[in-house]
Amino acid sequence: MGDKKVTGRAGRIIPFILITILALIYLFPIILMFSTSVRTNDEVFNTSLGLWPQEWHFENYTNVFNVMPYWQYFGNTMFVTLMNVLGTVVCTPLIAYSLSKIQWRGRNVLFAIIMSTLMIPYTVTMVPMYKMWTKVGLTGTFWPLIIPAFFGYPFYIVILRQFMLTIPDELMEAAEIDGANSLKVFISVILPLSKPGIATIVIFSFMSTFSDFLGPLLYANSSAHYTLSLGLYSYMNEHTVDWVGMMAATALFMIPIMIVFIFCQKYLMDGISTSGLKG
C-alpha cells in the first residue's frame, strides 16, 4: 500500500488491468450517450449495431434548437447558477473565517448547529419552504432558487472552514500586530490564501445548481423559467419519445459542464484533497 513499493510485476499489472476495465465500464454510459445522439430513432434499440454509429446524424443536434428554446433554457440555467455561485462566494468565506479564525463565545455551539443542519433532508423543509415562497409571491420566479445561496449553505461553509483551519495563525498575528482589524486580516491575509478552497466551493456550487432538478421542478412554473434540467425532462412528457433528440439535448446539456470540469479539474481535485471534505 505504501507509495514506495508494490511487490512484483503481477502486483503492478493486475491492478492496471482492473482499473482499465473499470474505467471502460464507467465511461460506457457517457460514450453511449454521444453514440445514441448521432443515430436515427430506428437504430436506438438495435444494440447489435454496436457503439460506433453507421452514419453520423449531426442534424439531431440542430433539431434540438427547433424542439426546445435551448438558448433560453441555457440562459435561465446560467443565470440561476451564476447567482448561486455569487451568493456562495460573497457570503461563505466570511462565515467560514469567523468559524475558523476568530475566537468568540458561542462559536463552537454555532458550528455544531451548522454540522447538524447537514443532516436535514431536503424533503423535510420542502413543503414549508414552498408555502413560504408562495406567501411572498415568489413561486414561479428564479428567486427561491437563488436567495438561499446568499445566506450560506452549510456544506460549503464546512468545506471552507476546514480549509481555513490549515492556514497558520502566525500569518494573521503578523497582520494584527501591524494594527489590522478582523476585516482587514480577512481581506489581506485569509482571502488570498483561501483561493483553492473558494475555487472548490465555486465549482461545487456551479455543478450542483447547474444540474439541479427538484428546485426548478418546484419553483419554475412556466417554460419562460425552465432550466435545462426541466427542458430535458419535458422531452419525456410529449406524446412521442424522441430518443435521439433527447440524447442530443443531453449531450448539449453536458457540454457546458464538461468544459467547466476540464478547466477546473486540477482546482477541484486539489480542493477536495486539501479541504475539509475529509471530515
Binding site: L22, A23, Y26, L27, F28, P29, I30, L32, M33, T36, V44, F45, M207, F210, S211, F213, L228, S229, L232, Y233, M236, W243, M246, M247, T250, F253, M254, I257, M258, F261, Q265, M269
Partner: peptide, 22 residues
C-alpha cells in the same frame, strides 16, 4: 481519476435517461 469522477458531475436527468437505455 477524471474518468471515475466524471459521472458525479453528470446531470441526474441526463444520466437516468442513459441508464434507461442500458
Amino acid at each position: 481519476r477524471s474518468v471515475f469522477y466524471m459521472p458525479a458531475i453528470f446531470p441526474v436527468v441526463a444520466s437516468t435517461i442513459v441508464w434507461l437505455l442500458i
